[in-house]
Design a protein around this nucleic acid. Sequence first.
DNA 1: TAGATTGTTAATCGATTAACAATC
DNA 2: TAGATTGTTAATCGATTAACAATC
Lengths: 216, 216
Amino acid sequence: MNRDYADVSMAVIRRLPKYHRYLKDLMEKEIYRISSRELSRLIGFTASQIRQDLNCFGGFGQQGYGYNVEELYNEIGKILGLHKNYTTVIIGAGNLGQAIANYPSFIKYGFQLLGLFDVNPKLMGMKIRDINIMDVDLLEDFVRENKIEIGIICTPKEVAQNIADKLTKANINGIWNFAPVDIKVPNNVTVENVHLSESLFILSYLLNEKEHFKKK
Amino acid sequence: MNRDYADVSMAVIRRLPKYHRYLKDLMEKEIYRISSRELSRLIGFTASQIRQDLNCFGGFGQQGYGYNVEELYNEIGKILGLHKNYTTVIIGAGNLGQAIANYPSFIKYGFQLLGLFDVNPKLMGMKIRDINIMDVDLLEDFVRENKIEIGIICTPKEVAQNIADKLTKANINGIWNFAPVDIKVPNNVTVENVHLSESLFILSYLLNEKEHFKKK
DNA sequence: TAGATTGTTAATCGATTAACAATC
DNA sequence: TAGATTGTTAATCGATTAACAATC
Protein backbone atom coordinates (compact mmCIF):
# COMPACT_ATOMS: atom_id res chain seq x y z
CA MET A 1 0.00 0.00 0.00
CA ASN A 2 1.31 3.37 -1.04
CA ARG A 3 -0.25 6.53 0.32
CA ASP A 4 2.48 8.87 -0.81
CA TYR A 5 0.65 10.02 -3.90
CA ALA A 6 3.61 12.18 -4.90
CA ASP A 7 5.41 8.96 -5.86
CA VAL A 8 2.73 7.94 -8.33
CA SER A 9 3.67 8.60 -11.93
CA MET A 10 1.62 10.87 -14.16
CA ALA A 11 1.06 7.90 -16.49
CA VAL A 12 -0.98 6.23 -13.75
CA ILE A 13 -2.79 9.40 -12.73
CA ARG A 14 -3.90 10.16 -16.26
CA ARG A 15 -5.64 6.78 -16.35
CA LEU A 16 -7.67 7.41 -13.19
CA PRO A 17 -10.46 9.44 -14.83
CA LYS A 18 -11.03 6.59 -17.24
CA TYR A 19 -11.42 4.08 -14.41
CA HIS A 20 -13.76 6.53 -12.74
CA ARG A 21 -15.91 6.79 -15.85
CA TYR A 22 -16.14 3.04 -16.46
CA LEU A 23 -16.98 2.36 -12.82
CA LYS A 24 -19.77 4.91 -13.06
CA ASP A 25 -21.15 3.04 -16.08
CA LEU A 26 -21.00 -0.24 -14.17
CA MET A 27 -22.86 1.30 -11.24
CA GLU A 28 -25.57 2.50 -13.58
CA LYS A 29 -25.85 -1.03 -14.91
CA GLU A 30 -26.17 -2.24 -11.32
CA ILE A 31 -23.03 -4.33 -11.47
CA TYR A 32 -21.65 -4.53 -7.94
CA ARG A 33 -18.35 -6.34 -8.28
CA ILE A 34 -15.74 -6.65 -10.97
CA SER A 35 -12.41 -8.40 -11.40
CA SER A 36 -9.37 -6.82 -12.98
CA ARG A 37 -9.83 -9.31 -15.81
CA GLU A 38 -13.37 -8.21 -16.60
CA LEU A 39 -12.47 -4.55 -16.23
CA SER A 40 -9.56 -5.15 -18.58
CA ARG A 41 -11.92 -6.43 -21.24
CA LEU A 42 -14.11 -3.33 -20.90
CA ILE A 43 -11.53 -0.62 -20.60
CA GLY A 44 -8.72 -2.00 -22.73
CA PHE A 45 -5.86 -1.85 -20.22
CA THR A 46 -4.24 -5.14 -19.18
CA ALA A 47 -5.52 -6.73 -15.97
CA SER A 48 -2.00 -6.54 -14.65
CA GLN A 49 -1.82 -2.81 -15.27
CA ILE A 50 -5.18 -2.26 -13.59
CA ARG A 51 -4.03 -4.07 -10.45
CA GLN A 52 -0.73 -2.18 -10.47
CA ASP A 53 -2.47 1.15 -10.93
CA LEU A 54 -5.00 0.64 -8.17
CA ASN A 55 -2.37 -0.58 -5.79
CA CYS A 56 -0.53 2.70 -6.01
CA PHE A 57 -3.29 4.13 -3.84
CA GLY A 58 -4.28 1.23 -1.63
CA GLY A 59 -5.55 -2.33 -1.56
CA PHE A 60 -9.07 -1.77 -2.79
CA GLY A 61 -9.67 -5.35 -3.91
CA GLN A 62 -10.20 -8.65 -2.22
CA GLN A 63 -8.54 -11.90 -3.27
CA GLY A 64 -10.93 -14.33 -4.84
CA TYR A 65 -13.61 -11.66 -5.15
CA GLY A 66 -12.34 -8.71 -7.12
CA TYR A 67 -13.29 -5.09 -6.55
CA ASN A 68 -16.47 -3.62 -5.15
CA VAL A 69 -17.61 -1.27 -7.92
CA GLU A 70 -19.17 1.43 -5.77
CA GLU A 71 -16.35 1.46 -3.25
CA LEU A 72 -13.72 1.68 -5.96
CA TYR A 73 -15.66 4.42 -7.73
CA ASN A 74 -15.82 6.44 -4.53
CA GLU A 75 -12.17 5.89 -3.69
CA ILE A 76 -11.00 7.00 -7.12
CA GLY A 77 -13.32 9.97 -6.88
CA LYS A 78 -11.64 10.95 -3.64
CA ILE A 79 -8.16 10.48 -5.07
CA LEU A 80 -9.16 12.80 -7.92
CA GLY A 81 -10.55 15.29 -5.41
CA LEU A 82 -14.07 15.05 -6.82
CA HIS A 83 -15.68 14.89 -3.37
CA LYS A 84 -14.79 18.55 -2.91
CA ASN A 85 -16.22 21.72 -4.39
CA TYR A 86 -14.17 24.24 -6.29
CA THR A 87 -14.81 27.89 -7.01
CA THR A 88 -14.09 28.85 -10.61
CA VAL A 89 -14.19 31.70 -13.07
CA ILE A 90 -14.10 31.60 -16.85
CA ILE A 91 -12.19 34.23 -18.78
CA GLY A 92 -13.38 34.58 -22.34
CA ALA A 93 -17.14 34.26 -22.72
CA GLY A 94 -17.23 33.34 -26.40
CA ASN A 95 -18.50 30.03 -27.72
CA LEU A 96 -15.85 28.00 -25.96
CA GLY A 97 -16.26 29.77 -22.61
CA GLN A 98 -20.01 29.31 -22.80
CA ALA A 99 -19.61 25.67 -23.78
CA ILE A 100 -17.45 25.06 -20.70
CA ALA A 101 -19.87 26.96 -18.47
CA ASN A 102 -22.62 24.59 -19.57
CA TYR A 103 -20.55 21.42 -19.71
CA PRO A 104 -22.44 18.71 -17.82
CA SER A 105 -19.59 17.03 -15.94
CA PHE A 106 -18.21 20.44 -15.03
CA ILE A 107 -21.46 21.26 -13.24
CA LYS A 108 -22.01 17.78 -11.89
CA TYR A 109 -18.70 17.30 -10.12
CA GLY A 110 -18.72 20.37 -7.91
CA PHE A 111 -17.02 22.94 -10.08
CA GLN A 112 -18.90 26.02 -9.08
CA LEU A 113 -18.83 28.86 -11.60
CA LEU A 114 -18.88 32.26 -9.88
CA GLY A 115 -17.83 34.63 -12.62
CA LEU A 116 -17.49 35.04 -16.38
CA PHE A 117 -15.20 37.68 -17.85
CA ASP A 118 -14.72 39.15 -21.29
CA VAL A 119 -13.43 42.24 -23.06
CA ASN A 120 -16.30 42.51 -25.53
CA PRO A 121 -18.62 45.35 -24.40
CA LYS A 122 -21.53 43.71 -26.21
CA LEU A 123 -21.41 40.75 -23.83
CA MET A 124 -21.41 42.83 -20.62
CA GLY A 125 -24.46 42.19 -18.50
CA MET A 126 -25.41 39.07 -20.43
CA LYS A 127 -26.03 36.06 -18.26
CA ILE A 128 -24.93 32.44 -18.67
CA ARG A 129 -26.39 30.07 -16.10
CA ASP A 130 -27.33 33.08 -13.95
CA ILE A 131 -23.77 34.37 -13.97
CA ASN A 132 -23.23 37.92 -15.22
CA ILE A 133 -20.52 38.47 -17.76
CA MET A 134 -18.16 41.08 -16.32
CA ASP A 135 -15.39 43.24 -17.68
CA VAL A 136 -12.02 41.57 -17.49
CA ASP A 137 -10.69 44.63 -15.63
CA LEU A 138 -12.63 43.40 -12.62
CA LEU A 139 -11.04 39.95 -12.75
CA GLU A 140 -8.21 40.38 -10.24
CA ASP A 141 -10.35 41.91 -7.49
CA PHE A 142 -13.11 39.37 -8.06
CA VAL A 143 -10.75 36.40 -7.80
CA ARG A 144 -9.20 37.77 -4.62
CA GLU A 145 -12.47 38.68 -2.93
CA ASN A 146 -14.21 35.44 -3.77
CA LYS A 147 -11.18 33.25 -3.11
CA ILE A 148 -11.49 31.66 -6.54
CA GLU A 149 -9.48 28.44 -6.80
CA ILE A 150 -9.60 27.68 -10.53
CA GLY A 151 -9.35 30.05 -13.47
CA ILE A 152 -10.43 28.77 -16.86
CA ILE A 153 -8.79 30.52 -19.78
CA CYS A 154 -10.92 30.52 -22.93
CA THR A 155 -9.38 33.61 -24.52
CA PRO A 156 -7.41 33.98 -27.75
CA LYS A 157 -3.77 32.99 -27.35
CA GLU A 158 -2.51 36.57 -27.52
CA VAL A 159 -3.91 37.51 -24.11
CA ALA A 160 -3.70 34.17 -22.32
CA GLN A 161 -0.38 34.86 -20.59
CA ASN A 162 -1.61 38.24 -19.42
CA ILE A 163 -4.74 36.66 -17.93
CA ALA A 164 -2.64 33.96 -16.28
CA ASP A 165 -0.47 36.67 -14.70
CA LYS A 166 -3.54 38.42 -13.30
CA LEU A 167 -4.89 35.16 -11.91
CA THR A 168 -1.54 34.36 -10.34
CA LYS A 169 -1.35 37.77 -8.69
CA ALA A 170 -4.82 37.22 -7.27
CA ASN A 171 -3.70 33.92 -5.66
CA ILE A 172 -5.33 31.40 -7.94
CA ASN A 173 -4.52 27.72 -7.24
CA GLY A 174 -5.06 26.22 -10.66
CA ILE A 175 -5.55 27.18 -14.27
CA TRP A 176 -7.43 25.16 -16.88
CA ASN A 177 -6.03 26.55 -20.10
CA PHE A 178 -7.74 26.25 -23.47
CA ALA A 179 -5.59 28.82 -25.27
CA PRO A 180 -3.05 27.27 -27.65
CA VAL A 181 0.00 28.53 -25.78
CA ASP A 182 2.09 27.21 -22.90
CA ILE A 183 1.51 29.76 -20.19
CA LYS A 184 4.19 30.40 -17.58
CA VAL A 185 3.26 30.46 -13.92
CA PRO A 186 5.09 30.08 -10.60
CA ASN A 187 5.43 26.63 -9.04
CA ASN A 188 2.56 27.08 -6.63
CA VAL A 189 0.07 27.38 -9.50
CA THR A 190 -1.04 24.22 -11.29
CA VAL A 191 -1.79 24.37 -15.02
CA GLU A 192 -3.69 21.79 -17.02
CA ASN A 193 -3.83 22.41 -20.75
CA VAL A 194 -6.42 21.42 -23.31
CA HIS A 195 -4.76 22.01 -26.63
CA LEU A 196 -7.54 21.33 -29.10
CA SER A 197 -5.46 21.99 -32.17
CA GLU A 198 -2.83 19.47 -31.07
CA SER A 199 -5.53 16.84 -30.86
CA LEU A 200 -6.83 17.80 -34.30
CA PHE A 201 -3.34 17.63 -35.79
CA ILE A 202 -2.85 14.14 -34.39
CA LEU A 203 -6.07 13.09 -36.09
CA SER A 204 -4.74 14.61 -39.30
CA TYR A 205 -1.48 12.69 -38.89
CA LEU A 206 -3.27 9.41 -38.28
CA LEU A 207 -5.44 9.88 -41.37
CA ASN A 208 -2.27 10.17 -43.43
CA GLU A 209 -0.24 7.49 -41.74
CA LYS A 210 -1.13 4.74 -44.19
CA GLU A 211 -0.01 6.91 -47.09
CA HIS A 212 3.30 7.73 -45.47
CA PHE A 213 3.71 4.02 -45.04
CA LYS A 214 3.05 3.31 -48.73
CA LYS A 215 5.73 5.77 -49.82
CA LYS A 216 8.39 3.74 -48.07
CA MET B 1 16.76 8.40 -41.73
CA ASN B 2 13.50 6.61 -41.21
CA ARG B 3 10.62 7.11 -43.60
CA ASP B 4 8.50 4.28 -42.32
CA TYR B 5 6.27 6.45 -40.20
CA ALA B 6 4.40 3.42 -38.94
CA ASP B 7 7.45 2.61 -36.82
CA VAL B 8 7.37 5.93 -35.02
CA SER B 9 5.91 5.70 -31.55
CA MET B 10 2.83 7.67 -30.53
CA ALA B 11 4.94 9.37 -27.85
CA VAL B 12 6.95 11.04 -30.59
CA ILE B 13 3.95 11.83 -32.74
CA ARG B 14 2.10 13.52 -29.90
CA ARG B 15 5.02 15.91 -29.53
CA LEU B 16 4.95 17.01 -33.18
CA PRO B 17 2.13 19.57 -32.85
CA LYS B 18 4.11 21.29 -30.11
CA TYR B 19 7.21 21.57 -32.30
CA HIS B 20 4.97 22.89 -35.03
CA ARG B 21 3.54 25.56 -32.76
CA TYR B 22 6.91 26.73 -31.42
CA LEU B 23 8.41 26.87 -34.90
CA LYS B 24 5.49 29.02 -36.00
CA ASP B 25 6.24 31.40 -33.12
CA LEU B 26 9.89 31.55 -34.15
CA MET B 27 8.95 32.35 -37.73
CA GLU B 28 6.74 35.19 -36.53
CA LYS B 29 9.69 36.50 -34.55
CA GLU B 30 11.77 36.28 -37.73
CA ILE B 31 14.21 33.79 -36.29
CA TYR B 32 15.56 31.74 -39.16
CA ARG B 33 17.69 29.08 -37.54
CA ILE B 34 17.68 27.26 -34.26
CA SER B 35 19.74 24.56 -32.57
CA SER B 36 18.25 21.69 -30.63
CA ARG B 37 19.76 23.28 -27.53
CA GLU B 38 17.96 26.59 -28.00
CA LEU B 39 14.72 24.85 -28.93
CA SER B 40 15.11 22.74 -25.81
CA ARG B 41 15.23 25.84 -23.66
CA LEU B 42 12.05 27.18 -25.26
CA ILE B 43 9.95 24.07 -25.47
CA GLY B 44 11.12 22.19 -22.40
CA PHE B 45 12.12 18.88 -24.02
CA THR B 46 15.77 17.83 -23.81
CA ALA B 47 17.96 18.67 -26.79
CA SER B 48 18.68 14.99 -27.14
CA GLN B 49 15.00 14.15 -27.35
CA ILE B 50 14.43 16.84 -29.94
CA ARG B 51 17.17 15.44 -32.18
CA GLN B 52 15.88 11.90 -31.69
CA ASP B 53 12.31 12.94 -32.48
CA LEU B 54 13.17 14.84 -35.62
CA ASN B 55 15.39 12.07 -36.85
CA CYS B 56 12.48 9.67 -36.90
CA PHE B 57 11.30 11.52 -39.99
CA GLY B 58 14.50 12.59 -41.67
CA GLY B 59 17.72 14.55 -41.29
CA PHE B 60 16.30 18.04 -41.20
CA GLY B 61 19.29 19.62 -39.51
CA GLN B 62 22.81 20.50 -40.48
CA GLN B 63 25.88 19.86 -38.34
CA GLY B 64 27.39 23.03 -36.97
CA TYR B 65 24.34 25.06 -38.00
CA GLY B 66 21.19 23.63 -36.48
CA TYR B 67 17.76 23.60 -38.08
CA ASN B 68 16.25 26.00 -40.58
CA VAL B 69 13.09 27.18 -38.82
CA GLU B 70 10.88 27.60 -41.87
CA GLU B 71 11.99 24.36 -43.48
CA LEU B 72 11.43 22.40 -40.28
CA TYR B 73 8.06 24.03 -39.77
CA ASN B 74 6.98 23.04 -43.26
CA GLU B 75 8.30 19.51 -42.93
CA ILE B 76 6.49 18.91 -39.66
CA GLY B 77 3.36 20.41 -41.17
CA LYS B 78 3.58 17.89 -43.99
CA ILE B 79 4.18 15.01 -41.60
CA LEU B 80 1.05 16.07 -39.73
CA GLY B 81 -0.84 16.31 -43.00
CA LEU B 82 -1.56 20.02 -42.59
CA HIS B 83 -0.71 20.79 -46.21
CA LYS B 84 -3.94 19.06 -47.23
CA ASN B 85 -7.57 20.06 -46.93
CA TYR B 86 -10.16 17.98 -45.17
CA THR B 87 -13.93 17.97 -45.50
CA THR B 88 -15.69 17.87 -42.15
CA VAL B 89 -19.10 17.91 -40.51
CA ILE B 90 -20.02 18.69 -36.93
CA ILE B 91 -22.73 16.73 -35.19
CA GLY B 92 -24.22 18.59 -32.24
CA ALA B 93 -24.61 22.32 -32.85
CA GLY B 94 -24.73 23.41 -29.21
CA ASN B 95 -22.13 25.64 -27.58
CA LEU B 96 -19.34 23.17 -28.08
CA GLY B 97 -20.16 22.42 -31.70
CA GLN B 98 -20.35 26.13 -32.43
CA ALA B 99 -17.10 26.75 -30.60
CA ILE B 100 -15.35 24.14 -32.76
CA ALA B 101 -16.94 25.55 -35.92
CA ASN B 102 -15.40 28.92 -35.10
CA TYR B 103 -12.10 27.65 -33.69
CA PRO B 104 -9.31 29.62 -35.38
CA SER B 105 -6.78 26.85 -36.00
CA PHE B 106 -9.55 24.60 -37.23
CA ILE B 107 -10.35 27.10 -39.95
CA LYS B 108 -6.76 28.08 -40.59
CA TYR B 109 -5.30 24.65 -41.25
CA GLY B 110 -7.62 23.51 -44.00
CA PHE B 111 -10.39 21.81 -42.10
CA GLN B 112 -13.34 22.73 -44.24
CA LEU B 113 -16.70 22.62 -42.50
CA LEU B 114 -19.47 21.54 -44.89
CA GLY B 115 -22.31 20.63 -42.57
CA LEU B 116 -23.68 21.07 -39.06
CA PHE B 117 -26.24 18.64 -37.65
CA ASP B 118 -28.49 18.63 -34.63
CA VAL B 119 -31.72 17.13 -33.33
CA ASN B 120 -33.09 20.35 -31.85
CA PRO B 121 -35.83 21.69 -34.18
CA LYS B 122 -35.20 25.22 -32.89
CA LEU B 123 -31.74 25.20 -34.43
CA MET B 124 -32.83 24.04 -37.90
CA GLY B 125 -32.12 26.62 -40.57
CA MET B 126 -29.80 28.60 -38.32
CA LYS B 127 -26.47 29.38 -39.85
CA ILE B 128 -22.97 29.20 -38.35
CA ARG B 129 -20.23 30.53 -40.60
CA ASP B 130 -22.65 30.31 -43.54
CA ILE B 131 -23.36 26.66 -42.87
CA ASN B 132 -26.97 25.65 -42.35
CA ILE B 133 -27.78 23.51 -39.35
CA MET B 134 -29.50 20.39 -40.65
CA ASP B 135 -31.49 17.58 -39.11
CA VAL B 136 -29.33 14.69 -38.00
CA ASP B 137 -31.53 12.34 -40.06
CA LEU B 138 -29.85 13.78 -43.14
CA LEU B 139 -26.35 13.05 -41.81
CA GLU B 140 -25.67 9.72 -43.47
CA ASP B 141 -26.69 10.81 -46.97
CA PHE B 142 -24.85 14.09 -46.63
CA VAL B 143 -21.60 12.43 -45.57
CA ARG B 144 -21.80 9.96 -48.41
CA GLU B 145 -22.73 12.50 -51.09
CA ASN B 146 -20.13 15.05 -50.07
CA LYS B 147 -17.40 12.50 -49.38
CA ILE B 148 -16.86 13.88 -45.88
CA GLU B 149 -13.57 12.75 -44.38
CA ILE B 150 -13.86 13.85 -40.75
CA GLY B 151 -16.90 13.74 -38.46
CA ILE B 152 -16.76 15.82 -35.29
CA ILE B 153 -18.99 14.52 -32.52
CA CYS B 154 -20.16 17.26 -30.14
CA THR B 155 -23.29 15.49 -28.90
CA PRO B 156 -24.21 14.25 -25.44
CA LYS B 157 -22.59 10.93 -24.59
CA GLU B 158 -25.84 8.96 -24.90
CA VAL B 159 -26.03 9.35 -28.68
CA ALA B 160 -22.33 9.46 -29.56
CA GLN B 161 -22.01 5.77 -30.43
CA ASN B 162 -25.10 5.95 -32.62
CA ILE B 163 -23.67 8.93 -34.50
CA ALA B 164 -20.34 7.14 -34.87
CA ASP B 165 -22.15 4.15 -36.37
CA LYS B 166 -23.89 6.37 -38.90
CA LEU B 167 -20.64 8.06 -39.84
CA THR B 168 -18.95 4.70 -40.23
CA LYS B 169 -21.70 3.40 -42.47
CA ALA B 170 -21.32 6.50 -44.63
CA ASN B 171 -17.59 5.80 -45.10
CA ILE B 172 -16.05 8.41 -42.85
CA ASN B 173 -12.25 8.29 -42.46
CA GLY B 174 -11.83 9.88 -39.06
CA ILE B 175 -13.81 10.95 -36.02
CA TRP B 176 -12.89 13.75 -33.64
CA ASN B 177 -14.87 12.83 -30.56
CA PHE B 178 -15.76 15.29 -27.80
CA ALA B 179 -18.35 13.09 -26.11
CA PRO B 180 -17.15 11.54 -22.84
CA VAL B 181 -17.35 7.95 -24.04
CA ASP B 182 -15.01 5.61 -25.88
CA ILE B 183 -16.78 4.98 -29.14
CA LYS B 184 -16.26 1.73 -31.01
CA VAL B 185 -15.47 1.80 -34.71
CA PRO B 186 -13.92 -0.62 -37.22
CA ASN B 187 -10.16 -0.54 -37.81
CA ASN B 188 -10.37 1.55 -40.95
CA VAL B 189 -11.83 4.49 -39.02
CA THR B 190 -9.48 6.64 -36.93
CA VAL B 191 -10.74 8.14 -33.69
CA GLU B 192 -9.15 10.96 -31.74
CA ASN B 193 -10.77 11.78 -28.42
CA VAL B 194 -10.91 15.05 -26.51
CA HIS B 195 -12.14 14.08 -23.08
CA LEU B 196 -12.60 17.43 -21.37
CA SER B 197 -13.73 15.99 -18.07
CA GLU B 198 -10.64 13.80 -17.83
CA SER B 199 -8.50 16.88 -18.17
CA LEU B 200 -10.54 18.69 -15.52
CA PHE B 201 -10.25 15.74 -13.14
CA ILE B 202 -6.48 15.72 -13.54
CA LEU B 203 -6.42 19.39 -12.58
CA SER B 204 -8.54 18.53 -9.55
CA TYR B 205 -6.11 15.75 -8.64
CA LEU B 206 -3.10 18.00 -8.95
CA LEU B 207 -4.70 20.66 -6.75
CA ASN B 208 -5.06 18.06 -4.02
CA GLU B 209 -1.75 16.31 -4.47
CA LYS B 210 0.05 18.30 -1.80
CA GLU B 211 -2.62 17.43 0.74
CA HIS B 212 -2.43 13.73 -0.04
CA PHE B 213 1.27 14.06 0.50
CA LYS B 214 0.87 15.71 3.91
CA LYS B 215 -1.35 12.88 5.15
CA LYS B 216 1.45 10.40 4.69
C1' DT C 1 41.02 25.17 -39.89
C1' DA C 2 38.37 25.49 -35.44
C1' DG C 3 33.96 25.56 -33.46
C1' DA C 4 29.42 24.17 -33.40
C1' DT C 5 25.93 21.04 -33.68
C1' DT C 6 23.84 17.27 -35.77
C1' DG C 7 22.81 12.19 -36.37
C1' DT C 8 23.19 8.02 -34.13
C1' DT C 9 24.70 4.45 -30.97
C1' DA C 10 24.93 2.95 -26.33
C1' DA C 11 23.45 3.44 -21.46
C1' DT C 12 19.94 4.47 -18.35
C1' DC C 13 15.67 4.99 -16.70
C1' DG C 14 10.81 4.13 -16.17
C1' DA C 15 6.63 1.87 -17.37
C1' DT C 16 4.28 -2.30 -18.62
C1' DT C 17 3.60 -7.13 -18.46
C1' DA C 18 4.16 -11.75 -16.55
C1' DA C 19 4.14 -14.77 -12.87
C1' DC C 20 2.89 -16.53 -8.63
C1' DA C 21 2.45 -16.70 -3.60
C1' DA C 22 -0.92 -14.95 -0.44
C1' DT C 23 -5.54 -15.11 0.90
C1' DC C 24 -10.42 -14.38 0.58
C1' DT D 1 -11.68 -27.09 1.21
C1' DA D 2 -11.19 -25.66 -3.77
C1' DG D 3 -11.41 -21.91 -6.86
C1' DA D 4 -10.77 -17.33 -7.86
C1' DT D 5 -8.42 -13.28 -7.88
C1' DT D 6 -5.72 -9.96 -5.64
C1' DG D 7 -1.19 -7.76 -4.24
C1' DT D 8 3.42 -7.73 -5.33
C1' DT D 9 7.91 -9.11 -7.08
C1' DA D 10 10.64 -10.03 -11.02
C1' DA D 11 11.26 -9.82 -16.12
C1' DT D 12 10.56 -7.41 -20.20
C1' DC D 13 9.89 -3.86 -23.03
C1' DG D 14 10.10 0.83 -24.64
C1' DA D 15 11.28 5.56 -24.17
C1' DT D 16 14.53 9.00 -22.67
C1' DT D 17 19.06 10.65 -21.91
C1' DA D 18 24.04 10.69 -22.49
C1' DA D 19 27.91 10.54 -25.28
C1' DC D 20 30.56 11.20 -29.18
C1' DA D 21 32.05 10.52 -33.96
C1' DA D 22 30.71 12.65 -38.23
C1' DT D 23 30.52 16.76 -40.68
C1' DC D 24 28.99 21.33 -41.85
